[in-house]
Write a protein that binds this DNA or RNA. Structure first.
Lengths: 237, 237
DNA sequence: TCGCCCCTCGCTATTTCTGGGGAGGGTGAA
DNA sequence: TTCACCCTCCCCAGAAATAGCGAGGGGCGA
């Protein structure tokens, strides 16, 4: 592992806000000798955050032009699990070519490598490094640092999730065993009567469980309760 | 990185089926000198697979007793992103204690470390190492191999996803934008009427979307459709 | 052009769920 | 022991979802 990296990884776990996140990306960029390092994520509530070394002009332009919807990096990474070299992506569409041209004009390097990461509840993040170099030099660099990058990306995401969790401050309700079973059966598509039969209890009793679960979860109706239970990992279908 | 590990990682990418997956876990177990190594995953269609070194008696018993629903390891990992030491988990419930007792009686070691991994479309996997040892020895081992384990887990998952993608005759249902929006609103607890109002369409139209989504997802009712859409990562509440 | 899928709207009858209200006994922790 | 929570069962009326039928216009790729 590269010198100084270990220390940076530990500092990442002490990050408290977007500004310090940003300075971590800057340190990493300098450490690896790259043009850019960017960490960008969408939390479970759908809010987007970004910390990185792109110029503010480029970030503004990206948002203004809604490039998020045509960026092949986003597109490609959302569908896969493994890290991706930008050269592997599909840049054939007209929109993609225009986007690339604009990106290069705003200081983005021609080479990139992005690592998609997924957390609970649909959390999604992208860790990207970017530079200007030849294909050969880039591939050598990637081969050398690939594994470190995966570790770094994970450290970033771990911290981002921790910060998210702290803000949400949801007390995370727990369901009783019978409530869990009842909600699970309903989530599997059984009707109340079927679920009750499955559990060997009366439909009335089953209803009490579902109602109790609904109240605990703060759900508006049964379907909502199932959705929340699933999102919170309280049940597994 | 431990000697022989590099070679094993490369071999993982040549795995072709469950049997060779299994032998990879056995090699890893021997390499690290552990009691067990298990890789278990749920693909985007909800099918479960497992490859590991647990005795077949234990695997059978696990399935028979439906331990999946009370296993604190599954529960804990489903709710988090970062690797977890089994000792950190909540073993206080009665069911958890009974499960632990049974597990120990079937050759499962007292120490465990599990890495949750999430892929596209709600894919979820768990990479676990297990051994019998003291808390101190275990923590030392984890500290030493933590990063290698993350890499290994990723290599396993990369291959599992590749194999899934190849086999998957199930065309992985996709929802149209309006269907997605409709299902999302229902998942948030809105009634049909409210969801329709939110989308600015008639309730009848909304119903058509929900029905279409239900059929695509092979769901028995609306709640089931919501559960499947969530599990497959098609919607985010 | 044809076919497929998407988007939009309508009707009816039946089944199911929802939201209140009760009651009693069991268990585990403070 | 008390208190809180869990498990079980019951009634009812109104609201909502379901299953089935129908219609038409638009877009996109073969």
């Amino acid at each position: 592992m590269k010198a100084g990296l270990q220390e940076l990884l530990e500092d990442i776990q002490r990050v408290e806000n977007l500004e310090t996140f940003q300075s971590a990306t800057e340190r990493l960029r300098d450490l690896l000798g790259l043009s850019h390092v960017v960490y960008h994520w969408v939390n479970s509530v759908g809010e987007r955050f970004g910390a990185g070394t792109y110029s503010s002009e480029w970030v503004d332009r990206y948002l203004e032009k809604d490039y998020l919807r045509m960026d092949p990096v986003i597109f490609g990474c959302f569908q896969r699990f493994t890290p991706v070299n930008w050269k592997q992506l599909d840049w054939s569409s007209k929109a993609a070519k225009a986007f690339l041209h604009d990106a290069l004009a705003h200081g983005v390097g021609n080479q990139g490598y992005s690592i998609p990461i997924r957390g609970p509840n649909g959390q999604f993040a992208l860790f990207t490094i970017n530079d200007t170099s030849s294909d050969e030099a880039w591939e050598t660099l990637i081969a050398e640092t690939e594994r470190d990058l995966v570790i770094i990306a994970h450290e970033f995401n771990k911290r981002a999730l921790a910060l998210d969790a702290r803000e949400e401050s949801a007390p995370a309700p727990t369901l009783s065993p019978r409530e869990t079973a009842a909600v699970t059966h309903i989530a599997k598509g059984l009707s109340r009567a079927q679920a009750a039969a499955e559990m060997g209890i009366s439909e009335h009793t089953l209803r009490v469980y579902i109602e109790a679960a609904r109240h605990k979860l703060g759900a508006l109706n049964t379907t909502h309760a199932v959705a929340r239970a699933l999102s919170n990992g309280l049940i597994i279908v």
